[in-house]
Amino acid sequence: MIVNCQNISKSYGGIQAVESVSFDVEEGNIFGFLGPDGSGKTTLFRILTTLLLPDNGSARIDGFDVVKDFRKVRNIIGYMPGRFSLYSDLSIEENLDFFATVFGTTLKENYHLIRDIYVQIEPFKKRLAGRLSGGMKQKLALSCALIHQPKLLVLDEPTTGVDAVSRKEFWDLLIGLKEKGITIIISTPYMDEAGMCDQVALMQKGKILSCDKPDEIIRKDGQQLYSLKAENIYQLLKDLRKYPETDTVFPFGQDLHYTSKEKDPDLEKLKSYLKERGHEKLVLAAITPGIEDVFMHLMEKENPLNEKL
């Protein structure tokens, strides 16, 4: 177990940013934190990377306490903050050299680690970091975080604001790093990235709602999910919310995703209820839930009738 986190709490002036969070990360895993903005992911990461002191609880990275042994922790982690934080007035090469030297190493020494990533940006190594595209900046930041051969990589929303192709590429790189034995903790607001993680923690309002393998999270949730469609989606949503058997309902793309309180819901009854309310072209189908459905479901359970649309 490379990361062991117990009952970590942190509040900022009365606002509980992280509330009693506990989790473990196995060596060589990709551990994903999923959650909306403001769910406490960044605060948690800052505690893990020794940038912030927790109010309560303790965290150990490779056996070192993040508060007491912070200096040792800093040597074995690579951190990529959510916002681009390399020197925009230094070139790719200069940034890498600088971060390598402050860790007491050189680009040459650890070139093998970053080669796959670095070759993609190497042709532009004389270019100032500030003049790079978003995707290239991410690759440079990842290279800098890796330059000292860390055991653990902490990546705070590395794919936010990056185009779909670059996101895919970025994840391919992460899988490659995982194969080299590097443990990765990553946060993301994109639910589709959850499937690439070995473990996923769903976070909301500073708490972990569920933490397991992605398949397990879905299986444990155990809800039959239905997809519904009709002419007037908005009216359909409102009517479904009024339906007594409804457990959760939320928009998902062009459809509505619906779960029932009943173990074996009477679908005909539901259909006739909706037809009575004048819905036309009604389509209802049972589907397999994805991680996003589970997340929405868990969130709605926490705050019933989430009116935010």
Partner: peptide, 13 residues
């Protein structure tokens, strides 16, 4: 302001 300090702070400097 630029956030570079955050990156620098996780180094063993």
């Amino acid at each position: 302001e630029r956030g570079t300090l955050e990156q620098l702070n996780v180094t063993p400097i």
